[in-house]
Design a protein around this nucleic acid. Structure first.
Lengths: 346, 346
DNA sequence: TTGAAAGCGCTACCAG
DNA sequence: CTGGTAGCGCTTTCAA
């Protein structure tokens, strides 16, 4: 293509400089080049450029599910900020499958992205050591892995579990169930918070009351309904449920309502995620806000920070404090509203 | 990197051949190479490969909004199928802004993607001529542009408007309003269908009853509420509303319900998109299904078809027939259920 | 079955 | 301010 541009009588180099706003070029020449470029609608081949500069200006995002609004919101805020700094976001979905995740990450690695943002569904740390060996910087979001010292930005999931469960206790629930998520940090820590909140008020944890959903972010409506069916079959039946996330809660509530159960009178329900449709549901859903936009923004900030500094700085961790959002699904007479908005870094 | 692999005493070329499963290589040599590759966790630089082969195995998707489940579902099915053929999907969002869309497409063009799938929010055709000049194949989805002979896959939007409006007529609505979308083909044709359905039953189109939302797929909850407020202030007040899409309908219904209006008794509401949460809303929402998964699948099929054939085949158009889904928001005594599932191609 | 030469489109570095 | 030389990491073509 540069050959074609040589019908201006200048060298390829000059064109290249003009295209990159390099100062070392005469005004008149610059004009002529720009004119011809516009005329031909010419675009430099970014792949070739990357090959020599070693930078792609591409940042990858790997999430378990794009259909889940929580991740879609993160993608959105991330993309906005990166765009502002000249970076471009590549989004890919692992469908909550560790093997697909590995494949996707390999792909991104082979394309030499400048950085990768990952909400991982893997439970082992080996893949990340491989990423580190390639020297591709990465930022974990939403989920951490045990024994991995990496950049992380997400919510305090143990607090999520405590907040939700305490709220159910506060409104007078006596038998609190939990539809828990998978064996990722989010699933595990929310259960821990749930257990702790129960323990703190001298309640026993009833194993029957914990239903496990292996793939908490996929096909959630059916799974939520199934879990609720199971819970309603128990004796005594729970009078409060904390769901791993809002889509599960939605499915659970639907099933209960269809069975003639009243929410919150017969059974109170709280989810997590504070998704945009929560207040439009058959019974508006109480939830724990995870600050999804903030997660995207901070992830972008961390990634850009790494990209702009020579040396790899030591891993940064940002833990956001979750926030209780009360709606009708947990509104009973005794209800009191709690909320916390602080944030801690380390 | 190949230098490092040359400590096996073989040439770079051989390595390259092994990596591409080229048959011309001895079994023993192949084994040795593979072993070392695994050991080093080596990945060929795809950018360099693309530079010489001219193929990136990248397909781009440009949508107005990722948060909109309709587009997220398309992205999902598209990605699945492309992955199956060794292609990789790059997703980007135009935020329903023609300028951002142009910028994103330029970016994708510069990266020499093998094909681009676009749900365009532009109203002019010039950008697409530029794409054609670059010889990058593209497929339009959801929205067509006047005067552009391109590959297209989407739903018959005029039928969407007719189906929704006729349904409202069937259940006995006398004053039917429409919260319409932007000046894209989808917005325009759905209004046309609305007008036609009214005309066919000898009704007058009342201009007041048509509210326009310029950005029908963005910030929809508030916009839907605003539109409904406007409609409820009219005299006589409409008793049926056809909304451009489900998120708008959701916002509209919320506002009405909060004002003490009963749905469907006082005012019936129908949307479009048949999103997964429609049946979980405060009043389960009737909708027109657009076959979002099918759109993704067909788009992938068309794109792969082009990529696998030497010559650019003539543009292919797939028009899916929309399907009426009745839920409570339009369920009155007289209700009868219509449905059509056929599909036409040309 | 293997490998040497050539070049994809671009930019770094340093000379004029 | 301008341009030559070299090379990014890979694949192609064709000869050994």
């Amino acid at each position: 293509m540069k050959d074609i541009a040589r019908d201006l009588g200048v060298s390829v180099i000059t064109i290249s400089k003009v295209l990159r706003n390099h100062p070392d070029v005469g005004d008149e020449t610059r004009e002529r080049v720009l004119a011809r470029v516009k005329e031909l609608d010419y675009r430099p081949n970014l792949a070739a450029r990357s090959l020599v500069t070693g930078r792609t200006y591409l940042v990858g995002l790997v999430v378990p599910d794009l259909l889940h609004p929580f991740f879609a919101e993160i993608a959105k805020s991330l993309s906005e900020i990166l765009r502002g700094s000249g970076y471009y976001l590549i989004i890919s979905s692992s469908e909550e499958d560790p093997d697909i995740e590995e494949q996707e990450i390999s792909q991104l690695l082979a394309r030499r992205l400048d950085a990768i943002i990952i909400a991982s569904c893997r439970s082992t740390v080996d893949l990340f050591f491989r990423i580190e060996k390639q020297k591709t910087p990465y930022v974990l979001i939403d989920r951490v892995l045990p024994g991995l010292a990496a950049n992380f930005i997400g919510v305090d999931d143990e607090a999520v579990g405590r907040l939700a469960t305490s709220h159910l206790i506060d409104i007078g629930c006596k038998r609190i169930a939990h539809i828990r998520g998978p064996e990722t940090s989010t699933g595990i820590r929310r259960v821990e918070g749930y257990r702790r909140a129960l323990a703190q008020t001298g309640r026993r944890v009833v194993d029957n009351y914990i239903i496990t959903e292996r793939k908490g972010d996929v096909d959630t409506k059916q799974r939520g309904a199934d879990a609720m069916r199971e819970l309603l079959g128990l004796n005594p039946r729970p009078d409060g449920v904390f769901c791993f996330n809002d889509p599960l809660a939605m499915g659970a509530m639907n099933y209960a309502i269809d069975q003639g159960i009243r929410i919150p009178e017969d059974i109170a329900v709280i989810g997590c995620g504070n998704l945009h449709y929560d207040d439009s549901l058959r019974v508006p859903l109480s939830s724990i806000d995870q600050h999804s936009r903030r997660i995207g923004e901070e992830a972008a900030r961390i990634a850009l920070g790494i990209l702009n500094s020579k040396m790899p700085p030591r891993p940064e961790t940002v833990v956001l404090q979750p926030e209780l959002i009360v709606r009708r699904s947990t509104q009973r007479r005794e209800a009191k509203q709690a909320s916390s908005k602080t944030k801690s870094r380390s």
